[in-house]
Every structure is written in structure tokens, then in C-alpha cells.
């Protein structure tokens, strides 16, 4: 399918063209079968208010209106292609949602598309997510997404010289934060062991560990080592209590 049925201006990558049609249909149907889909898509007048107020549209080739239109027309080829790079430009601010006269939620549609892209471990998604490994490691193992020791100056050179200044004697500066559980360096606040064990159960039961294994097996192994270590600590500490 070289030319788009409706003559839209969105190019389709060669990789997408090579994928069997049935596979593209399967993936798009996976998005459409999500229980949120019916709550996020109603009708569209092509008024373009969503795109006009979209921050990502100001700097990327990205349009929430296109997302809505492609779904309304069930444009499988374009939708499948969008799931590899296009959707990752969205900044998930949901300005489109509050502004749409129909109550469409293009940002929400993007969230579902991203989730399906990750679940299907698309190659492009793996590449896009590579720089995110540190945050993923942190949130999966500690239940915090950010900590003071993650803000290394060499990773944020564009934030200026203050970064290096803050990192100097970081531990003492963290201890000078005036509430006890905020004093930790490796987590944003001190998360109790019993709490993190509950989070591991949630990751397991909801398939998030599996999702990660498909996406990045190396990172998954590192994470599972820490998970198992903490589970052992927990068992030793509270042995016989339950």
C-alpha cells in the first residue's frame, strides 16, 4: 500500500510497509480493544483546537488531530506506523483533552498506543527507552522514580554549574532536609521494606515484570536481583511474624 487511501500527508516508513497486514490489524485492534478507548474517542469536526494548543506540535511533526482522525477512519497503516515514533513526541499534558469540544482525549489515545507498543516490544520503542533505564531501575526496585543521586552533573550539563555544587557532600545536604524520611540519598524519601515488597507483588501480578523482560532482558535481570535480595531481607526480618 504505497499511497494512502485518503491522500493524507503522513509518510509511512518502509519498515511498516514490510509488516504483514494482519499483524498491523492485530496491533491496532489491541489499542481499540482497551477499555479506555471508548471513553477517549467520540467524534471530530477537524476544528484543530487540539493541535493549535498542543506544545509538541510547536516543535515536532505531531498532531493530536491526526491521531483522532486516523482512529475515526480506522487507518490501520498509519496508526501502526505512528506507534513506532510519532506518538513519542506527545508530552502528555492533556491540553487537547480539556480543549476538545467533543471531549476527545488524544493524549489518552497516545497513552494506550504507547502501552501497546511497549507490550509488543517494538524495536523502535526499545531504542527510545534505552536512556530511561536508570529511572526504570529506580522505580521498579525502590518505588521511587527519582532520587538525589540520579541528578549527576555529567548527565545534565545543560542545567548549569549548580548541579555540581549540589552534588558536593550530597549526603550531608540530604541529612539537612528537615524531616526524617526525606534524608535519604538513593531514594526521594525512605520507602519502608514492607511497602516495596507490596509493590513487587503488584508488578508481578499485573505483568509489568514480564513487560520489562521483553523490552530489556539485561535491565530485567539486574532488577530481579535486587527484588530477590529485598524479598530475602524481608523474609529474614519478619520471619515467623505472619
Amino acid at each position: 500500500m504505497d499511497e494512502h487511501n485518503y491522500g493524507y500527508n503522513l509518510s509511512i516508513s518502509e519498515k511498516t510497509k514490510m509488516v504483514p497486514w494482519e499483524e498491523k490489524v492485530r496491533v491496532v485492534e489491541e489499542v481499540k480493544s482497551d477499555f479506555r478507548f471508548k471513553e477517549y474517542l467520540f467524534g471530530c469536526l477537524n476544528c484543530g483546537v487540539c493541535t493549535a494548543s498542543c506544545p509538541s506540535n510547536k516543535f515536532f511533526d505531531f498532531s493530536p488531530r491526526e491521531i483522532v482522525q486516523r482512529f475515526l477512519e480506522n487507518d490501520v497503516e498509519v496508526l501502526y506506523d505512528m506507534m513506532h515514533e510519532y506518538i513519542w513526541a506527545c508530552s502528555q499534558c492533556f491540553t487537547c483533552w480539556i480543549r476538545c469540544p467533543f471531549g476527545n482525549n488524544p493524549g489518552g489515545l497516545v497513552a494506550i498506543m504507547r502501552e501497546v507498543a511497549v507490550r509488543n516490544a517494538f524495536e523502535a520503542t526499545k531504542e527510545l527507552l534505552k536512556p530511561y533505564g536508570r529511572v526504570l531501575l529506580k522505580v521498579m526496585t525502590t518505588g521511587n522514580q527519582l532520587s538525589a543521586d540520579m541528578l549527576q552533573p555529567d548527565l545534565f550539563p545543560d542545567w548549569g554549574p549548580k548541579m555540581a555544587d549540589i552534588m558536593e557532600d550530597l549526603k550531608a545536604k540530604r541529612l539537612a532536609i528537615p524531616f526524617d524520611i526525606g534524608k535519604s540519598v538513593k531514594t526521594a524519601w525512605e520507602v519502608s521494606l514492607e511497602t516495596i515488597i507490596e509493590l513487587y507483588t503488584i508488578w508481578r501480578e499485573t505483568g509489568i515484570f514480564e513487560m520489562l523482560e521483553k523490552l530489556d532482558p539485561n535491565l530485567y535481570n539486574v532488577i530481579m536481583d535486587i527484588v530477590e535480595e529485598n524479598e530475602e531481607r524481608y523474609q529474614k526480618l519478619y520471619e515467623g511474624e505472619e
Binding site: 477499555f35 479506555r36 502528555q92 497513552a111 504507547r114 502501552e115 507498543a117 511497549v118 507490550r119 520503542t125 527507552l129 530511561y132 529511572v135 526504570l136 522505580v139 518505588g143 521511587n144 522514580q145 527519582l146 524531616f179 524520611i181 526521594a188 524519601w189 525512605e190 520507602v191 519502608s192 514492607e194 511497602t195 516495596i196 507490596e198 509493590l199 503488584i202 508488578w203 499485573t206 505483568g207 509489568i208 513487560m211 520489562l212 523490552l215
Partner: peptide, 23 residues
């Protein structure tokens, strides 16, 4: 103000699509 709380983990979801509504 106690340590028995996790992050919502929604930054993870909105940014990278890792997680799902059930989690």
C-alpha cells in the same frame, strides 16, 4: 509522614508507557 508509601509511578507511565491501568 511515614515511609509506607510508594510513588504513584505515573511519570513512568505517561513518559514511557511502561505499566498499565491495573498496576
Amino acid at each position: 509522614n511515614e515511609p509506607h508509601q510508594t510513588s504513584c509511578t505515573a511519570w513512568n507511565y505517561y513518559g514511557f508507557g511502561i505499566s498499565n491501568p491495573v498496576a
